[in-house]
Design a protein around this nucleic acid. Structure first.
Lengths: 143, 143
DNA sequence: TATTGTTATACTCTATAACTATA
DNA sequence: TATAGTTATAGAGTATAACAATA
C-alpha cells in the first residue's frame, strides 16, 4: 500500500524560491538594486548591529563576502565606512543620503512584489505559510 | 490603525529557501552531487523530454547553461550524448550506469533531507505548504 | 594572542551572443 | 531560413586562506 506520494517538499520549495527569487531580482534591478544590497540595507535600517561580523550574520553571508558588497556600495556612494573611535578595529557602516533613497526605492519595489505574490491568498494563509516555513527552516538549522 | 505588520512573505521565503538550499547543497555534496546535477538527473529519470531545450526548461535554465552542466556530467561519465538518427540535430542524453548510481545516491540523500525538513509537520501541513507555495509561484509566473 | 576587517584568489551557477550542424 | 545545440565570454554571488590593523 504505497503512501500517497507527496512531491518532496524540498523540491517544491526550491522551485518556488527560484521562481519567486528571479521575479524579485527583476523587481529590485528595475529599482536599481539587487538582493544582497537589499538585504544589507534592510539589516542596516532595522537591526542594531555592533560590527560587520554581526551584519554579515544578519544577512547570512561570510565577512569577506560582506566586504565585497560593501566595497561596491561604498563606490556607488550608498554607504560610508569609518573606524569606531571607541574601538578602532570596528568599522562603522552608515547609510548616505543616496543609500537612504535607494532603501526607500527598494522598499517600495519589495512591497509591490510582496503584494503581487500575495494575490489570492488571505492574511491567515500568509501567516500559516510563514509559520510553516519557519518550522521547516528550524529543522535544517544546526543550533 | 496600522495593519499588523506581517513580515514580507518574500523575505521569509527567500530566507527559508537560502537556509534549506544550503543544507540541501551540503547533503548532495556529501553524496557526490550538486543541485543542478540532481535537477538534471531527476528530470532525465522522471520527465519524458524530446530534446535538450525541453530538458533545460524542465530544470529552469537556459540551453547554454544546460550544455555547461552536461559537459561536466559527460566528463564525469554520468551521461552520454549521441545524435538522434531520426533527426541528427537532436542530441539524445542518456544516463550511464555511473549516472544511474549517482541518481540513486542523490535520491537517498534527498529523501533523508526531506524527512529531516518535515520533522514536526503533519502530512496535512506539508500538503498545505505545497499548495500555498504553488499559488505564490503562480502569482509571479508570467503566462 | 585574539579580534575585526580586507585582500587575493577562485569556484559555481547563470546568462547572452555568435557560431556550427542539420533540416 | 529555421531549429538544435555548442563555444566563447562574462558577470554575480559566494567562499577560503592569508594578511594587516588594532586591542
Amino acid at each position: 500500500m504505497p503512501r500517497p506520494t507527496t512531491a518532496p517538499i524540498g523540491v517544491v520549495l526550491a522551485r518556488t524560491a527560484k521562481t519567486a527569487g528571479r521575479a524579485f531580482d527583476q523587481a529590485l534591478a528595475a529599482a536599481g538594486g539587487s538582493q544582497p544590497v537589499w538585504q544589507i540595507l534592510i539589516s542596516l535600517k532595522t537591526t542594531p548591529v555592533a560590527n560587520q561580523r554581526e551584519l554579515a550574520d544578519a544577512v547570512g553571508i561570510q565577512g569577506a563576502t560582506l566586504t565585497h558588497h560593501l566595497n561596491g556600495m561604498e563606490t556607488a556612494g550608498l554607504v560610508t565606512r569609518r573606524r569606531d573611535p571607541a574601538n578602532r578595529r570596528v568599522h562603522l557602516v552608515e547609510l548616505t543620503d543616496d543609500g537612504e533613497q535607494l532603501f526607500h526605492r527598494l522598499a517600495t519595489a519589495a512591497i509591490a512584489h510582496d503584494q503581487r505574490m500575495r494575490r489570492g491568498l488571505t492574511d491567515t494563509e500568509i501567516a500559516q505559510l510563514a509559520d510553516l516555513l519557519h518550522r521547516l527552516a528550524a529543522n535544517v538549522t544546526d543550533d
